[in-house]
């Protein structure tokens, strides 16, 4: 696409981010989930995957889906600076999505984690992948994180024992509306990484190929009776 002068002014400044190397995780069910960085060409499948969950209030899927929809759209339309999206796919079908943003040297800003396939800690694995990208590949020292659901709070703030800096620095606020901001430091990450982050690299070519073209799920446990296209 030709970028005219006006469009160029609308776009945020962008850094060249180090790529996130794909990995393979065998879930408890034995299913193999390819975890890879999403490409702009995946945006349609990602948005189509998130969209049906906009109307699911249970477990705050609605707010997380709405925000993630705008984050993916913003990333696709070049309206968010240095955003990245990581996706988990089982046989090509999207099982979960995470969004995040590199703010500046040393600092990352976690956006959202959306679990499609539940019960196998898919969200936990993808959140760990997101942190892995921030700290191990983008070289950041801290990642700011908020939770917008009780499940998120349990998974990230409590399980990772994140530092609550909302009292220490009341002016420090996450971009997502100023709710209490917690921080994953490099030191904390190194402590939890052995038990939180896993995956085999490189991904065998035949398995990586299954995740090349992402497939939207036909059904969601969050939407009993719903079928895509029905």
């Amino acid at each position: 696409m030709a970028i005219d002068a006006l469009e160029a002014k609308l776009r945020p400044p962008a850094d060249v981010l180090a790529p996130y190397p794909s990995k393979l995780i065998t879930l408890a069910s034995g299913e193999q989930m390819v975890v890879r960085e999403a490409r702009l060409a995946d945006a349609g499948a990602l948005l189509g995957t998130v969209y049906p969950l906009l109307g699911v209030p249970k477990d705050y899927y609605d707010i997380v889906a709405a925000r993630m929809y705008s984050e993916i759209l913003g990333w696709f339309r070049y309206r968010v600076a240095n955003e990245f999206v990581i996706v988990g796919a089982i046989d090509g079908v999207i099982a979960g999505i995470v969004t995040s943003r590199h703010v500046k040297a040393g600092l990352g800003m976690s956006l959202h984690t959306l679990t499609i396939k539940r019960g196998l800690r898919v969200g936990a694995q993808l959140f760990a992948a997101k942190m892995e990208h921030h700290i191990d590949y983008l070289g950041e020292d801290e990642v700011h994180i908020v939770a917008e659901s009780p499940i998120g709070f349990k998974r990230w703030m409590i399980e990772y024992e994140l530092e609550d800096r909302s009292a220490m620095y009341p002016d420090l606020r996450h971009e997502l509306g100023g709710v209490p901001t917690f921080t994953l430091t490099r030191k904390l990450w190194e402590a939890v990484k052995p038990v939180k982050c896993t995956g085999v690299r490189p991904v065998p070519a035949e398995l990586l190929k299954t995740a090349d073209k992402l497939i939207m799920p036909d059904e969601y446990v969050q939407l009993p009776g719903w079928k895509r296209g029905a």
Partner: peptide, 17 residues
């Protein structure tokens, strides 16, 4: 959800999964 022995005990990811 059925689980497999490879995934929860024998495999490379079992310690985290």
């Amino acid at each position: 959800l059925p689980v497999t022995i490879e995934a929860i005990a024998d495999g490379e990811n079992a310690n985290v999964v």
